[in-house]
């Protein structure tokens, strides 16, 4: 795809924990003592087109936040490459990483933790562009004012401290700070998860308006399926570090192909009248330290067969626009 802004190619991320002294001693005695390896991301391949909002959905431990951090250049991938506009984002080439991290900006979940409590919000917003010389020093305060207005706040708020704002307003400030860097790509990691419902709608509206007006490209990481459906063009479903399904939002919600996607949809409560029975997924998410062999979902999958225990399903094209990693769509489970 030539028009894709972000391409993630076979990216894996492993976190290794070195054993502590006691574990090393115990390991020497028993002959073990291997470092513990967490497979946070395994072989993820994705493209995000310019102007597209891609949702990344999954439960805790599925690797969605790690993916966001790899894209933002916070973690270097263990394998594979991440390219932004044809140039690699990697930590190894230090100079390049610094240049690129200004083009990818992240918005975090907790606006109480992500803003410096002792810094006036105007300073917080101006710090990045000033350091990277994105805008001339004499127009910084003007720019801060217009950014604040762009996110629905008043320019005069630049002199206030974060504690003078509510959660929703702080998240607006975090968005203004990200936009100040004139990024190519936004990574939103559960950006509305900690907001109350009435405030969440305000921030989602703001995000959708900005996205359309500025033509922003975004990776929208969330566990909330209804929010993702509302704001995203395409959705990637992740399970235990792997991409299991990727499809346009509309198709995915109408007809999920992967059994995990269907099970996830079935366990989400929806607002409606009348009782409903929760068709819960059996069992728990396995540990990313010891992922099960074959398909990671097979221990919980109602349709698993012998092949699922043996062989890792590959991400295969299901139709023009969607891919799914399941043997059911790729030759059967027998």
């Amino acid at each position: 795809m030539s028009q894709s802004l972000l391409s993630i190619d076979q990216v894996s991320k492993r976190f290794t924990r070195k054993p502590g002294l006691a574990e090393r001693l115990a390991g020497r005695l028993s002959g073990g003592g291997e470092p513990v390896v967490v497979h946070a991301l395994t072989d993820v391949t994705l493209e995000v087109a310019r102007g597209e909002v891609l949702g990344v959905v999954g439960e805790s431990g599925c690797g969605k936040s790690t993916l966001g951090r790899v894209v933002a250049g916070i973690h270097a991938p263990s394998d594979g490459t991440v390219m932004l506009d044809g140039k690699p984002i990697t930590r190894d080439q230090r100079g390049t990483a610094e240049k690129l991290t200004t083009q990818v900006q992240m918005i975090h979940q907790d606006p109480f933790a992500s803003l410096n409590p002792r810094m006036k919000v105007g300073e917080t917003i101006a710090e990045g562009p000033r350091y990277h010389k994105i805008i001339p020093a004499n127009v910084v305060s003007e720019r801060v004012g217009s950014l604040l207005e762009q996110v629905g706040l008043e320019a005069a708020y630049a002199d206030r401290l974060p504690h003078q704002f509510s959660g929703g307003q702080r998240q607006r400030i975090a968005i203004a700070r990200a936009l100040a860097m004139e990024p190519e790509l936004l990574v939103l990691d559960e950006a509305v998860a900690s907001l109350d419902v009435s405030i969440q709608a305000q921030v989602l509206n703001l995000f959708m308006d900005l996205q359309r007006n500025l033509g922003l490209t975004a990776l929208f990481i969330s566990h909330d399926l209804s929010v993702v459906r509302h704001v995203c063009d395409r959705v990637a479903i992740m399970y235990l570090g792997r991409l299991v399904e990727l499809a346009p939002a509309k198709d995915l919600y109408e007809r999920p192909l992967h059994p995990y996607t269907s099970a996830l949809f079935a366990s989400v409560p929806t607002v409606g009248t009348g009782k409903r029975v929760f068709e819960a997924i059996q069992g728990e998410i396995p540990s990313p330290i010891n992922p099960p062999p074959g398909c990671a979902f097979h221990p919980r999958c109602p349709q698993a067969g012998p092949r699922c225990r043996r062989e890792v399903p590959r991400l295969a094209q299901a139709d023009d626009q969607r891919t799914v990693a399941c043997h059911l769509n790729d030759g059967g489970v027998a």
Binding site: S166, D196, S198, A201, M208, S226, V227, H230, V271
Partner: peptide
């Protein structure tokens, strides 16, 4: 009514969400 209206699942995807102005 405002709370129920602000839930994304009750609206056409991509549309403007009705919101309760102000904060708690």
């Amino acid at each position: 009514q405002g709370l129920l209206d602000s839930i994304p699942a009750r609206h056409e995807p991509g549309g403007h969400l009705p919101q309760i102005p102000g904060s708690t």
